[in-house]
Nucleic acid binder design. Structure first.
Lengths: 183, 183
DNA sequence: AGCGACATGTAAGCGGTTACATGATTCT
DNA sequence: AGAATCATGTAACCGCTTACATGTCGCT
């Protein structure tokens, strides 16, 4: 259950509402994770029941009360325990490669169109990682002054960069090979 | 719904039972897809209801009857349609990177242990792709004589190779960076 | 006047895993 | 004697997505 531990990870920096947690997700880890509020809210409720967090209600009028969640000692232990337990490797699952695998059912131009579209998308991703994502991360590190943490944050971005780069290379090579096919 | 179309893709080569389809999955696309029999059987039933396949019962005794599924014209059209429709890009989801992101909660040695384990696993994967997976694919191409199809099959393997290689490089570099940290 | 930020949720459905159920035949 | 292969499924549960529901405040 990774969502739970991602939430604990952020709450370990500071108490927050579900809404703010979602913003941290989008601002810090969107290059490898995403979650919707409709999952976050119920999950925080469960975590409260399990005693991993406590909830502090801040009454507001005109809009729903803020529910600020605080890490408990049990929560800190749960996070530590999870971090120390190796994840079991989850199987690869690439729907796109199913299309490629059965690509012989399409014409050369049809399959090329698909690959070119994917290539454009991945080039966009690369630009995003090198630009806004990298900048956001830099700002977070400067704003918090967390240098040791910052090293790990950067590693996750490096992972993203390696993977998009690999995808782009593969797409370029694949397009070349298919273009050489005579139909 | 990729499982459905992967099944149609294989049934397009030859009529088969669910059990045999599972073997084809494991023998041809396990480097990017996997599925369990407990999903395949109900899915074939649905596909029959939708008219994408027909079922031919081969009575056996001592074991369950073989249910051989045949592609219909509607099935062929469904497959073509799916192959021609761009997939919408599904979001990245890397639980492992959550652990890295919050790695500052662990000691240097704890996080290194995790990364080294992952590295060993990925080196194993690489050996598998270069060995048995590549061999199996070659045999499939020779046995069926499907050269054009074989090109696409190989592309999916290339994708796998690119990605594991990228992961290995990232792990090696990350390990080096963390080792340089003084605690 | 309309949109985005703020702030919380519920309900239905989907695709998947894991465990359970059965049982003969062939290989080691 | 025990494991793998052949061959089919059902049931419970799980994490996630999408759609629905509500309503204010501030900016353009």
């Amino acid at each position: 259950m990774s969502l739970k531990h991602a939430l604990l990870g952020f709450l370990n920096y500071a108490p927050m509402t579900g809404y703010e947690l979602k913003q941290h997700f989008d601002g810090s880890i969107r290059h490898f994770w995403n979650s919707s509020l409709s999952r976050i809210y119920p999950m925080l409720g469960e975590m409260e029941n399990e005693g991993l967090v406590t909830m502090e209600m801040q009454v507001q009028d005109g809009r729903p009360n803020r529910k600020v969640y605080h890490m408990t000692q049990a929560g800190r232990e749960e996070l530590q325990g999870w971090l120390r337990t190796p994840l079991d490797q989850q199987p690869v699952r690439e729907p796109f490669l199913i299309k490629v695998f059965f690509g012989a059912n399409l014409t050369k131009e049809e399959i090329l169109a698909e690959l070119r579209q994917k290539l454009a998308f991945h080039r966009g991703l690369l630009a995003d990682y090198r630009g806004p994502v990298r900048e956001g991360m830099k700002e977070n590190i400067e704003a918090t002054g967390l240098k040791r943490d910052g090293l790990f944050w950067r590693l996750t971005l490096d992972a993203g960069l390696k993977h998009v780069t690999a995808s782009i290379e593969w797409l370029e090579e694949s397009i070349r090979k298919i273009e050489e096919l005579d139909e």
